[in-house]
Simulated scan of single mutants.
Amino acid sequence: MLDACAEIVDEVGYEGLTTTLLAERAEVAIGSVYQFFPDKRAIVQALTLRNIEAYLQRLNERFAGGEFTYWWDGVDAGIDEYISMHRNVRGFRTLHFGDVVDVRLLDESQDNNAVIANELTKVLVERFGIPDEPRLRFALQIAVEAADSLIKLAFRRDPDGDDDVLREAKALIREYLHRHVDSTPAVGGTTTPTVGGTATPTAEPALAPSGGNA
């Protein structure tokens, strides 16, 4: 049913989606739809959660491949996977992470993009050992909001994503996050990840106090 939902919203948008149309496309009785979903909002919420799981799985697989050296590689991968889902995942270009339905579809206490930023924070903290502090989450939430808006613009300009806009989006996000990065070499040639000024020797640059220079 979720696959059928993705196909329908690609064709007619969220407003055109109905439970009757979904049942017909999925070749199930309408009662089977209501057995699992009370309305189309619940269907889209389930599809959005599946997309988030797929997004995070893709990121984790890339991290597991050991191809990243610095924190920026992880951010870059996050942007690339978001772009890829726009291009390759049915329904995603319309629904994104559910904001077309409700900006708090995933969690009533915070915006959908805040949920994504929190998940990205977990990935970056686990991979690069950056201290998990509110300022880090705030910076990533700003980055996610900006990237989301610019990527949507790119796909409005070109069905496959305007490459010029996508390049500018990456450059903007990288420049913004680098203003929170302290990559000053430590003893032995390593860098010291800091959030709030506490240094810990490591091999990667990391977030520094807001307003710092890369």
Rank of each mutant, 00 (worst) to 15 (best):
D182E: 14
I116M: 08
E133T: 14
A171T: 04
H178Q: 08
P201I: 06
E168D: 00
D162E: 02
E168K: 06
L153V: 03
V144P: 02
P185N: 08
L136S: 01
S109M: 14
H180P: 09
F138Q: 14
R156T: 07
A206V: 05
V100K: 05
T202P: 10
F97E: 09
I173K: 06
H178N: 15
D162M: 14
E145W: 08
D107W: 05
T94G: 07
N88E: 09
G161P: 03
T184G: 09
L140S: 03
G189A: 10
S109F: 03
A146K: 15
R179C: 13
R127A: 03
T184V: 10
V123I: 04
L105Q: 00
F92G: 00
Y176W: 04
T192S: 05
P131Y: 01
F155Y: 03
L120P: 03
T202F: 13
K122E: 13
P134G: 10
G212Y: 09
E175M: 00
E175Q: 01
V195C: 04
E145T: 01
R156W: 02
D148F: 11
N213W: 09
N118P: 06
V100Y: 01
A206E: 11
A146E: 15
L150K: 08
T202S: 12
A143Y: 10
S109Q: 15
A199N: 13
G188F: 03
P201L: 09
A208W: 02
